[in-house]
Amino acid sequence: MAERGTFRVKKGMAEMQKGGVIMDVTTPEQAKIAEAAGAVAVMALERVPADIRAVGGVARMADPEIILSIMEAVTIPVMAKCRIGHFAEAQVLEALAVDYIDESEVLTPADEKYHINKHQFTVPFVCGARDLGEALRRIGEGAAMIRTKGEPGTGNVVEAVRHLRVVREQIRAVVNAPEEELMHLSKELGAPYNLVLEVRKLGRLPVVNFAAGGIATPADAALMMQLGADGVFVGSGIFKAADPFKRAKAIVEATLHYDNPEIVARVSRGLGEAMPGLDMAELGAADRMQLRGV
């Protein structure tokens, strides 16, 4: 009697990714480079976030043709993104048998109010969050992995740092609060009460938490790991850089040896130009992907 798609199986899949780097790729060739560099998974996309910003318009789920060609190219897990609330795109991704679905603010949201009911799927979901309430709402909807959002496609780590710090600060508040304050705290956070209780018991999120959105260098990855991330997503940071393979490999090493500055220093040498970065002041509210689907 084998049972598929249990929460333990979905969440367990993310546990196996811990300490690793998940890389955005748009072609089978890029996927092979990512795999050779030591990525634990790839995110199959039509465009990396930096290009989505540049192109504008409506960003949708990638062409299944691209996703399938990437799935054929590598043996590591393949993730793919669907629009927030677009459960039909998610159904398509499940039918394609991608290993993880990212209900992502990088794409143009399909529903401005409701996220997908992720409990109904056998394939696990990862969702973005800027704070603990957002993270626990997504977990309440069935997300088996959380990535703090950051600001995708900027090559600027500042928002990634902000969001991870906020989540951890709020976890500390939950852990330290006396029991009678938890219901109020849960209301303030906009988080399901039962999950607030679970966070208090565990002293951490009940699922794996990767950092994302603006990580561009090995030191960025080491920073996020030292701040408590379980692993990192690198979107535009690799294939928008001068030497993608070298940079990808360096970020993998830095993520693994995040607490060993000598190794981070060694792998950071001579990587060539990083992706061009964006200052947050240059982004208006409409350009901030993190504000989508909260």
């Binding site: 084998a2 049972e3 897990p77 499940e94 048998a97 993880y100």
Partner: peptide, 24 residues
């Protein structure tokens, strides 16, 4: 692929008569 991942009860005599939950 992940869609086919599962959990099931396994018979493992060296661990006793109680089945062991295998998470695959």
């Amino acid at each position: 692929r992940q869609r086919e991942s599962f959990e099931t009860e396994l018979e493992i005599p060296v661990l006793g008569t109680e089945p062991f939950c295998g998470v695959f």
